[in-house]
Design a protein around this nucleic acid. Structure first.
Lengths: 406, 406
DNA sequence: ACCGTCCCTGAATCATTGG
DNA sequence: TCCAATGATTCAGGGACGG
C-alpha cells in the first residue's frame, strides 16, 4: 500500500495489510448507529446504501471494536487516535475504547461546539459533538497549542513570579530591594478540550456535498496536536476526505480508506483540486504555506487591505486608493529573497495596472544581492514590525555606549 | 417528610419514604468513582471521609442505578432529571440512564464549559463537565430559555418574515406593494446544550469551602428550564446545597438529602443566609474587560505578541524576550496623540519592569507637540504600515520632480 | 513502585488605590 | 463618597521530587 493515497474497501481488511507500529495519528469517524438503512444520494443522483444497518447496538459495537483493535495495532508507540462519536452510541464506544486502549491512555473528551440553525425542538439545541482522544501509550507525541489569556487576566498575573511564604500563602516574589521580580516569557494558555469551531466554514467553497463533512480547521487542529511534518495520518472511514485534505495542507503523509467508491472518488477529486488551486502548495509543502497564509492574512487585515487569494504576485489591495491609484501589496515569503518578492510584485502590478506597490519585508536575506537602485519610484519596501523591533536592542546598546562615551 | 427541608441519610432510604409521582425535577451529583477514600476538610477544619470508595465500576454503577430507579419513581410524569457526571464514569452512568429512563427520554448531554487555572498537564486542559438530561416521559415540562443572536446574524434574518416560494425556496415575505414584511419580534435563539458558565472562583464569596461546589447560576438555569414557581426540586446528593439555594432563590420548593451530617448543617446554614456572587463577567460580558478592539488585536497578532486586556498602558508583549527582557507594546488610539500614548506606555512599562517598549503610531497628530528628544533609549516608535504607505505618494512626487528637474 | 509534599499555573474574584 | 483602574489573592490539577 502506498502513502498519500486512498483505497476502497472495508477498513478492517485494509488495515490488516498495514505493518504494526507505523501510523502516527488516526482520525476515525465511524458510520452512525442508526437502525435504518442509510441512503445517500450524491450530486449526480447516484444512490447507494450503506451496509451500516446493524441489528442492534451489540453488533454495532462489535463491528467498531474489531476495527479499533486494528487501529491500535498499526499505531506507533507515540501515536494517538481521535474517535468522532455519534451521540447515540458514544457511551458504548467509550467503553470499547477504554478496553482496547486502556483507561490510563484516555486523554480527553473533546467537545466540538458550534452554533447552528435553531429549530423548534422541545428541549435544548443540539450544538456540540464529542471526539474521544486516546493515546497508544503514555509517551504519546503532543504539541501544545497556546491560546489567548482570558479578558479578566491582568499583566501582573502573566508577568510576575510568585512564591509561597512560611504559611503557604502565595505572594508576588520580590528581590532584596523589595522590587517585584518578572518571570519568564509566557506563551499563552494551553488549549482546552472545548473547541468552538463554526459548523459551516462560511467562506468555504470547501463544501462538497457530503452529509457529515467536517470543517478543515477541526481536522487541522487535531493533526497539529499530535503529529509533526511528514508524520503519517490514517483515516479508516474517510467519507469526503477532509482528514486527508487537512493532512496534505499541513504537509503530513496520509492514507485513507472507505468502503464506498463514491467516497474514494470524491476524496481523490478534492485532493487533486487543492493541487490545482495553488501550485505554491505543491511546490513548497503545506506548513510554509499555512503559516504564511495566516501571517499574511493578519498583516493584510491590519492595514485594512482587501486580501487577494489567487494571484502569484499580489497578496492584497489597499481599500483606499492613493491619488486615485490602486496600491498593491505583497508580503515576502519565507523562501523568497527580496529580489524575488519585488520582481513578482512588479510583474503582477504592471499587468494589473497598479499605481503603487508595497512590499512588506519579513526577513533579511543571508546574502543580500538586492540592488536598492532598482526600486521604482512607485514601490515602497517596509520592514515587518518584528524586523523593526529587533533593531531596538542594538539601538539601545549603541545609545548606551554613546552616553557612556560622553 | 417536609418540603423545604433537608435530611441526613442514604438517599435511597429517604427516597423510599417519598410518594411516587411527586417531584418535578431532580438534580443529582453522585459521588465520583475514585478508588480512593475522599477526604474533605471544610473551612473550620472539620474533616470527614466519603463512603465512596467502591471496589470496582460495577459496584459503583449498581449503587447509582438503585438510586436512579427511585428517582424515576418519585418523579412526576412531567418531571425531569439532571445527572452531573464524573468523567471517568459518565459512559457507564449513561448506559444505566438509558436503561432506566429509556433512550427516547434522553433529552440532552449538557456541556458545562468554563475556563480555569491551567496546569502543566501534557495534553488538553480539562475545562468542561457533562450533565445528562432525561425526562420521565415525552410530556415533560420545558421552558425554553432564549439567548442572544450570534454576532453574525443580521437584523433582516431576525426581523423579517419568511415564506417559501413554489419551488420550496425560502424568501423574505413581501406585501402587495413589494415591501418586505417585518415579523413578530423574535425572542432570541433557544438555549443550546453547551453552557459557558464561569467556574466557581477561588475568591468568590459564594464559596463555602466544599470542594465540588457548583455555581448557583448553573443550578438556576437547570431549575428554570424544567420547573415553574412552587414546583418541587429534589437533590439526593446535596453536598453544599447549591441546588436548594438556587431553588429557594427561584421560589421553588425543595428537598435535600445527604449522608453526611456536615453537608446537612452546611446547607442549613447556607439557606439561612444566602450569598450569591454576582458574576461581573457574566453580567457585563467579556467586552467589559476588553481594552483591545479588533484593529489593535490584529496588529498584536501580526507581530506574534500576547494580547493583554486589563491594562491601560500595555496592549501586549512579545512572546519572545529580547536579551531576556520583556518587550511591552502599545498601539496608539484614535483619540490619543503620540505624547499620550508614549506617556501611558512608559508609565505602565516602568511599574511592570519591562526592558523594552514599542509604540505603533496609527496617525499623525494635527498639532505635533511631541518632543522626540524625550524618547528613552529602550523605546521604539514604529509607524503603522498604512502611515508608511501614505508616504509613498509624496515620495513618488518628489522623485518625479527631481527626475524632471534633472 | 508508591506515597506525600511542594511547585507552578491563570481565572475571576476581592481589595486597594487614586482621582 | 463614589467609581474606575489595577493590584493581589485563592484554589485545585497535575508534574516533579524526595524518601
Amino acid at each position: 500500500m502506498e502513502l498519500n493515497n486512498v483505497y476502497c474497501g472495508d477498513c478492517y481488511e485494509l488495515m490488516r495489510q498495514l505493518d504494526s507500529d507505523t501510523i502516527d495519528a488516526i482520525y476515525m469517524d465511524p458510520p452512525f448507529f442508526t437502525q435504518e438503512t442509510q441512503k445517500l444520494s450524491s450530486k449526480e443522483g447516484v444512490e447507494y446504501s450503506f451496509t451500516d444497518s446493524w441489528e442492534n447496538m451489540d453488533d454495532y459495537v462489535a463491528y467498531t471494536k474489531t476495527r479499533l483493535q486494528e487501529c491500535k495495532r498499526v499505531l506507533k508507540r507515540t501515536g494517538s487516535i481521535f474517535v468522532h462519536c455519534d451521540r447515540n452510541a458514544s457511551h458504548y464506544l467509550k467503553i470499547a475504547l477504554d478496553e482496547i486502549f486502556g483507561v490510563t491512555n484516555f486523554q480527553s473528551e473533546i467537545v466540538w461546539s458550534y452554533r447552528r440553525w435553531s429549530n423548534s425542538k422541545k428541549g435544548l439545541l443540539n450544538n456540540h459533538q464529542i471526539i474521544f482522544f486516546y493515546s497508544k501509550t503514555k509517551d504519546f507525541k503532543f504539541n501544545t497549542i497556546y491560546t489567548d489569556y482570558s479578558e479578566t487576566t491582568n499583566v501582573d498575573q502573566i508577568l510576575q513570579d510568585r512564591v509561597r511564604d512560611e504559611k503557604g500563602k502565595s505572594k508576588y516574589k520580590v528581590d532584596e530591594n523589595g522590587q517585584v521580580v518578572m518571570g519568564q516569557a509566557k506563551k499563552g494558555v494551553p488549549l482546552s478540550d472545548v473547541w468552538e469551531i463554526p459548523y459551516l466554514n462560511p467562506k468555504a467553497k470547501e463544501r462538497v456535498g457530503y452529509p457529515t463533512q467536517k470543517p478543515i480547521i477541526l481536522l487541522e487542529q487535531i493533526i497539529k496536536l499530535v503529529t509533526d511534518e511528514d508524520d503519517i495520518v490514517l483515516d479508516p472511514f474517510m467519507g469526503s476526505g477532509t482528514t486527508l485534505v487537512a493532512s496534505k495542507l499541513l504537509n503530513r503523509k496520509y492514507l485513507g480508506f472507505d468502503i464506498t467508491n463514491d467516497a474514494v472518488e470524491l476524496t481523490l477529486e478534492r485532493l487533486e483540486s487543492i493541487i490545482k488551486t495553488d501550485s505554491f502548495l505543491l511546490k513548497k509543502g503545506k506548513q510554509a504555506y499555512q503559516n504564511l497564509d495566516d501571517d499574511c492574512m493578519a498583516i493584510i487585515k491590519s492595514i485594512d487591505a482587501v486580501p487577494v487569494q489567487r494571484n502569484g504576485g499580489i497578496d492584497g489591495f489597499l481599500r483606499e486608493h492613493i491619488d486615485e491609484g490602486t496600491v498593491a501589496i505583497r508580503i515576502q515569503r519565507e523562501d523568497e529573497n527580496l529580489s524575488d518578492t519585488v520582481g513578482k510584485l512588479i510583474k503582477a502590478a504592471r499587468s494589473k495596472k497598479c499605481s503603487y506597490m508595497v512590499v512588506i519585508r519579513t526577513h533579511y536575506d543571508f546574502i543580500d544581492i538586492f540592488d536598492y537602485n532598482d526600486i521604482p519610484n512607485n514601490l515602497l519596501i517596509i520592514d515587518r514590525y518584528d524586523l523593526q523591533i529587533k533593531k531596538i536592542a542594538e539601538k539601545t546598546k549603541k545609545r548606551s555606549r554613546k552616553t557612556a562615551a560622553v
